[in-house]
Design a protein around this nucleic acid. Structure first.
Lengths: 201, 201
DNA sequence: CGAGAAAGTCGACACCGCGTCGATTATTCG
DNA sequence: CGAATAATCGACGCGGTGTCGACTTTCTCG
């Protein structure tokens, strides 16, 4: 309700809160961060914090929204393409891995808080839906063109792949090191064994 | 420190706390459960609760340990077997799905609290390691026998599959409905496209 | 039995973090 | 200038946690 138009002064404070939050999140989990610290980082008192954000979670939501663009970026070549385009997939996953490397704590903390924080859940759901929708469409295209085998409903399969990405990168110490393996796994999920790879009876 | 031997009386209270926790967890998320409620469920005062458990999380840990057996059960035929044994895999996943159906809230809540609660993290890690180890060994066996194609290091692949299971069942409204699709996906991850399938047209 | 240890119970307290309110001071702009 | 609006803060109340010390019940064994 407060804080409508007015593009100046306290704007820097708002930024300061955001960057402080980003900072702290690289050092400790969200639950261990107190509003006091956030306020201190912006050199205002705890109660002044509430002039800028409604709660700690609101800060996280803002941080999250900043990430939305980055999360979408770089995966269009893959999602809008056709067939087992390994390179496009690798580029998509490399981008994702980079984000997880830089903002893993934020994402992990936020996602953990999602049940119980509707805005965060909504953000995640939106992101997921967007990905699933495009990927499901891709799968349908591939199947129609005879490029991919039949299997689970495209939306379900796409959902599983989205889940897998989240789980894999969230848990990984070094997301970037997982990219090649993820490429292979996703291709197998979508296309089954492709080309030669050595064995296979 | 307190509470050593002595097999009686207050033991029922301990049980009562546990079952109350299980009960409440089916109705609301862990974060919304207060120690007061747990104590009330066992008909003791809040401060008496601390005689039995050190904290709310400690109760969860106990509940989790009760589940360990169930989580291991039923997957041996699959993990100790060889090759694309669809039926064994399906049985393993069906068991898992059942557990998630019955204890999803507990598992989800606990896993969300894992970072920041070492005992829970350790429990999860132990479970994961056990699964990964056995599955990785299975993959190695299959590859050595020429039954499975080469690919990511067995341990990595097994880890991804474990992650996938967690993410998929944790997010699913109806875990049981996901079993068939998971069977297919896991088989593809491990073996690539195999035969035709039929499920889901 | 009956005394003393151990098990169990509880109320009171201190602490912490959250969110709100009202009063106060800066700032902007007509 | 002076009025609206932006920004700041201290003080308060709330709810949940965990601890402490005193009290009661229940075992146990001489």
């Amino acid at each position: 309700m407060t804080r409508r138009r007015g593009p100046s002064k306290g704007d820097r404070r708002e930024r300061a809160i955001l960057t402080t939050a980003r900072d702290l999140l690289t050092r400790k989990p969200l639950a261990d961060i107190t509003i006091d610290e956030l306020a201190a980082g912006a050199e205002i008192s705890r109660s002044s914090f509430y002039f800028y954000f409604d709660s700690k979670l609101a800060v996280v939501v803002a941080l999250l929204h900043d990430l939305t663009g980055e999360l979408h970026a770089g995966s269009s070549p893959w999602l809008d393409g056709t067939g087992p385009d390994e390179e496009a997939l690798r580029r998509s996953l490399t981008g994702l891995a980079a984000i997880w490397s830089g903002h893993g704590r934020l994402l992990a903390g936020a996602l953990a808080a999602a049940p119980g924080c509707p805005p965060i859940a909504a953000w995640r759901a939106g992101l997921r839906d967007a990905h699933v929708k495009r990927l499901a469409a891709r799968i349908e295209r591939d199947r129609a063109a005879g490029l991919a085998p039949d299997g689970p409903a495209p939306a379900v399969l796409a959902g599983l792949i989205d889940d897998l990405r989240l789980a894999a990168f969230a848990g990984a110490a070094d997301p970037a090191g997982l990219v090649d393996d993820m490429v292979l796994v996703e291709l197998r999920i979508l296309y089954g064994e492709i080309g030669e790879t050595g064995a296979a009876g």
